[in-house]
Amino acid sequence: MTATETRSGSAVHGNGRGAAGTQPAASAAAAGPRRRRLKGHWAGWAFAAPVVIYLLVFYAYPLYRNLELSFRDYTVRSFIDGSAPFVGFDNYVKVITDATFTPALMNTAIFTVVSIVFQYSFGLALAVFFFRRFPLSGTLRALFLVPWLLPLLVSASTWSWMLNSDSGVVNAFLGAIGIDQINWLTSPQWSLVAVLLANIWIGIPFNLVILYSGLQGIPEEVYEAASIDGANAWQKFWRITFPLLRPVSAITILLGLVYTLKVFDIIWIMTKGGPGSSSTTFAIWSYRLGFGSALPDLSPAAAVGNLLIVIALIFGFVYIRAQRRLDPS
């Protein structure tokens, strides 16, 4: 909205200048307001300046430092005596040829895709359900937000204990229905499933809230018309709700992608990416290289982080395009 306002503002400027070429008299008349507008701009930038400086110092500079880290060979000693030789793409080569690279890439992909598929499906089903507006639906919908509001560390430690092999309530329940003990957090084949369970649980409320607000945007008349034509609930969902919700769905899924790629706390608390690399994603790998041991390996850690940022930004730009299309005002 703001973007288009400014753009249309400059379009007016452009027209004025174009007109000035053919009608010199008009340009003299336009000069006054333009100067006043310029003065207004200065005041405007004075309001925006703190955030601009803030973005430069606390976003651009850390990002730059991160790039620099990845192209040099930094160790803890470098921070003390300042020696950090430039090594070009060596850190990237080192990272890509590392034995952890392929599992981390696979885990990041699986973790992201599976999380989003389940969060979105559950979120949509619940949004449609709560949209039936039964008694208490508002209160219950609010309670559904709780998992999303809890500190991630709280959720992650609760899930750790619930999934504990010997004393966890999940295995106790599975035992009661005749399923053998599963080592959720300590066996390589289950650790990724365990962190996925927790992450899906945390993401459902977010999907529910956004998709619910999307449902509110579908006009009631469409459903009434379908009822007159004799459509049942199933047909209404697939022929009306789902297609009309597509723009909101696209936004929800893309935001989910960007957020899921960032997930760190849950995995780190529950499994630390292990056992081995069985639940290591790029975010975890980067942290483990940089801060996970007594001897930080900051340069390769920065390289992994930069690979992650490239992936996140690709989806980020797709999201921004999708949102512009949804909201063309």
């Binding site: 955030v51 973005l55 850390p62 991160n66 760190f264 982080g305 989806f315 999201y319």
Partner: peptide, 22 residues
Amino acid sequence: GGALSFVLLVAQMIPGIIMAMG
């Protein structure tokens, strides 16, 4: 102003671990 809004939108997408390292 449009560019500033855009930068802010992109800023939200930067993974925390990268900010932390910087």
